[in-house]
Design a protein around this nucleic acid. Sequence first.
DNA 1: TATTAAATCAAACGAATGTATGAATTACTC
DNA 2: GAGTAATTCATACATTCGTTTGATTTAATA
Lengths: 210, 210
Amino acid sequence: MPRIDTKTRILDASEQLFAGRGVSGTSIRAITAKAKVNLAAIHYHFGSKESVLESVLSRRLIPLNAERLTLLEEYERRSKNNVVALPKIIEALVGPALRVSRDPKKGGGLFMKLLGRLVLEPDEKIQSLLTNQFRTVLERFMPALKKALPGLEPADFYWRLHFLVGAMAHTMADSERIQTVSGGICNPDDTEDTIKRLVSFIVAGMEAES
Amino acid sequence: MPRIDTKTRILDASEQLFAGRGVSGTSIRAITAKAKVNLAAIHYHFGSKESVLESVLSRRLIPLNAERLTLLEEYERRSKNNVVALPKIIEALVGPALRVSRDPKKGGGLFMKLLGRLVLEPDEKIQSLLTNQFRTVLERFMPALKKALPGLEPADFYWRLHFLVGAMAHTMADSERIQTVSGGICNPDDTEDTIKRLVSFIVAGMEAES
DNA sequence: TATTAAATCAAACGAATGTATGAATTACTC
DNA sequence: GAGTAATTCATACATTCGTTTGATTTAATA
């Protein structure tokens, strides 16, 4: 028996490579080489490359989305009339996603990068995979958002939700560029600082006068 | 001589396929089949697949970025003290990019989609290619933005610029999802409406109190 | 310890990839 | 219209891809 489970080794290696070179840019052989397992191990344990991606995602995404819902429910419990302030809602949505980078056991930045990039992946299977995972979260957050943003017309609501996802995904996917562009002024490793800035940007955008 | 230049046919086909399936998801053979040219034509006219992408980008990006600068300069000429209002600056930055989708001669939405997706492409060569194209634009827009946002500390400035790019890229790349998510309420084909909403979201985000 | 199930292994499969070649064809120039 | 350059063509090359096989080894069970 290896020190670490073969399945886990494959998932870890896949996560790193997918995040760094993209899904279609990563070969089965690259994964098995990095994981130091036999080439056939992927087929034996997962069945296909696509199934590996599915496992890579659900391993992190299920607890991540659960945390989002837990946070929102906690805020709702503490609130009056179940109306949570907008910054809290946004924080519950983007906070857990950005915070995974702090915990090496949760992929330490790599999974975040991967997730941010997959949002714009052309592949339809990947898209439906992500959409399904995100649906329950969205269904739960939408009513809360609508309560926090009364008077906002539906079209504006959905458009701004769209912009929100874009800002969040880009922040998750590309934590290195901002360091270069800003000449070192911005430090994406300070997760809580990043969350604070992202939340305030989004909140202002969501509350903009139309 | 064919009705349309072979080079152009290759560029058109590449643009469509790159936008739809991603760069690494598109094969040379798929391009030549769609363009109805010989397989070797790509090697003859461009030399390599990467060189094709480079041409696809520069064909649209050079006039696009020129238009951004022209707009900004026009706004500056009309302004007092060279201080342009923030909404105008943002409009000059995101407007031309989103407007290419209205003109079928400029790629009609496909190039926009491609560009939005390439922003998060892992491949380093693609990144440096995009960065180089965007650098002159950024160098020109940054002073204008700083003038329009006095008092904003540098870290906030760069972070919000980062969020801006995210919201813009996501809007460019994914014009179909919002239609689905919103149940048809949002119409991404109405370019000017999209620009208006995106600009107001970004402006509010940029001006947020920190 | 004998038997069975689970896991790993080296090796190979056919298909698809980007690239390259040299002949055949077309377009242009004098 | 002959000669030259530019282009297009069918075809092949060497890799790499995801997947599969069947034997071998390891672990669990009895």
